[in-house]
């Protein structure tokens, strides 16, 4: 695979760090080199939050993703902040229920997924992030191409790793969110 650098960005509380962790774990299960780096500090409590995930066949250099191949974005300030940093030819996955703006760049593969309203409608409150992860794996991580490193089964294993036993009841909701995202 080619080096995959993903940036998850949104508000604190939307689950961008968790989304990144699931993607990173899928890489781990597939024996890839991976890193996961969160933004931290006051921004964790309501401001913009983001996390960098690198997945590669080779040791990860800087874990800070400054030019992502894939941007998963959950709010407008983050879209405005990061859209120009995406590598040409890269992929952008947008919660279009919260972000009404269209991407002007024409050199990107942009996927508009109304994830927060999909979550709301399907009784998956708070799982908009996992709908976008479903889309991410369907379009990039588990899709034939340069950046394929995973399968839907690996993603499911990663999910099981990331949900602590005391929240095991959440597993099926997350699975549903992922499959909604894959179909979106």
């Amino acid at each position: 695979m080619k080096d995959l650098n993903i940036l998850f960005a949104g508000f604190g509380g939307q689950g961008v760090l968790f989304a990144g962790k699931v993607a990173a774990y899928a890489g781990l299960i597939e024996n890839k080199e991976i890193s996961w780096l969160p933004s931290y500090g006051p921004e964790m409590r309501g401001g913009t939050a983001n996390c960098s995930v690198c997945i590669s066949d080779n040791p990860i250099g800087s874990p800070l993703v400054t030019n992502p191949n894939v941007l998963v974005v959950m709010n407008l300030p983050s879209l405005d902040k990061f859209i120009d940093t995406v590598e040409p030819g890269g992929t952008v996955i947008i919660d279009s229920a919260l972000i009404h703006k269209k991407v002007e760049r024409t050199d990107l593969n942009v996927h508009y997924v109304p994830s927060s309203s999909l979550a709301e409608e399907n009784g998956l409150k708070g799982l908009s992030n996992m709908i976008l992860v479903g889309k991410l794996f369907h379009e990039v991580c588990a899709a034939p191409g340069d950046y394929q490193f995973s399968t839907p089964e690996t993603l499911d294993q990663a999910l099981q790793k990331c949900i602590p036993p005391r929240k095991a009841g959440m597993l099926d909701f997350n699975r549903k969110a992922i499959s909604l995202g894959a179909q979106a």
Binding site: K21, A24, L28, W36, P38, Y40, I60, P63, L64
Partner: peptide
Amino acid sequence: DGMLGQMMEP
């Protein structure tokens, strides 16, 4: 440093 402290790796 903060990067190494905050980041996750296998």
